[in-house]
């Protein structure tokens, strides 16, 4: 078996990003405030990690208005889903390897 470390995604090494991706994998779409609540970080922290994931095209952004208030929600992209799955597999392989 090849080294599972190679399959880890550098961008997803950060736990907050991993948590954001987890939420978006499990749900069709999620808005900024709900996401912040589940992950439990500040506005600023959230924004920077969202930006990083957006830059990699792991997630897509939808801006709309709900009751005249701006509402931003996020969806995982096909690319994001694949990267997340690969990263998860690598994590599992690493942990399993260690336990042997």
């Amino acid at each position: 078996m090849k080294n599972p470390f190679e399959n880890l995604d550098r961008v997803l090494e950060h736990r907050v990003r991993l948590q954001i991706m987890s939420v978006l994998v499990a749900n069709k779409s999620y808005d900024f405030n709900s996401l912040k609540e589940v992950v439990g970080v500040t506005d600023g922290g959230m924004a920077s990690h969202i930006k990083a994931l957006e830059k990699e095209k792991y997630i897509s952004v939808q801006k709309s208005f709900v009751d005249r208030k701006p509402n931003t929600s996020y969806k995982i992209t096909e690319r994001g889903r694949n990267v997340f799955k690969k990263h998860l597999d690598a994590l599992e392989a690493l942990v399993k390897q260690q336990k042997k």
Binding site: F5, E13, R15, L18, Q19, S22, V23, V25, A26, N27, Y30, S34, V38, V39, L88, L91, E92, L94, V95, Q98
Partner: peptide, 23 residues
């Protein structure tokens, strides 16, 4: 490179976040 415990924590946080976000 992170410690192996960190990877275990990563896995645990994925699981709990997915769970919490949908319920």
């Amino acid at each position: 490179m992170k410690e192996i415990q960190e990877y275990e924590k990563d896995l645990a946080s994925i699981r709990s976040t997915m769970d919490r976000s949908g319920k």
